[in-house]
Amino acid sequence: MNTTTTSTTRITQALPSAHRIRLLRIAREVNIPQGTRLFEEGTRADRFWIVRTGTVTLDMHVPGRRSPVIETIGFDELVGWSWLFPPYVWQLGAEATTSVRAYEFDATAVRLMCEHDPQLGSAVGQWVGKVLAHRLQSARTRLLDLYAPYGSGSAL
């Protein structure tokens, strides 16, 4: 292992190994060239990825300006969660900012597996829930704009 960090949001730590192995069995190893758009806002969320190397950015299209980047996603992190909840439509766009190696999952197949095996369904729901909670907390903290001059130190 090249790192010993623990994280509650990584698939390797958040999913019991039996479930992880079952999921990975249907995963496809993919190489995504730099600049590839993984998905676009408003389109069908039929896949998701776990990044092995490289970086994916999440962005949003704003007419008249370069799509602002909302977050970057890297090693061992989940790209995409809209596939788990109806209406299964992407909320943001995603792009490979470097060349990316990833595990790609067929969302429909995973959802079917979860339906057939409630234990697996619960574990996957927990895992994605943790990822979402973590991202929500980060987004909330960023929303505070803490590094702005106010709230960041001496008044003098």
Binding site: T5, S7, T9, T57, V69, T72, G74, R142
Partner: peptide, 21 residues
């Protein structure tokens, strides 16, 4: 514009750091 680095809260980088807690 022109920023090609990471975007996100600094705590997210803890997932990438290499340490044995």
């Amino acid at each position: 514009d022109g920023w090609s680095g990471e975007v996100g809260l600094v705590t997210r980088l803890l997932d990438r750091a290499r340490f044995d807690p």
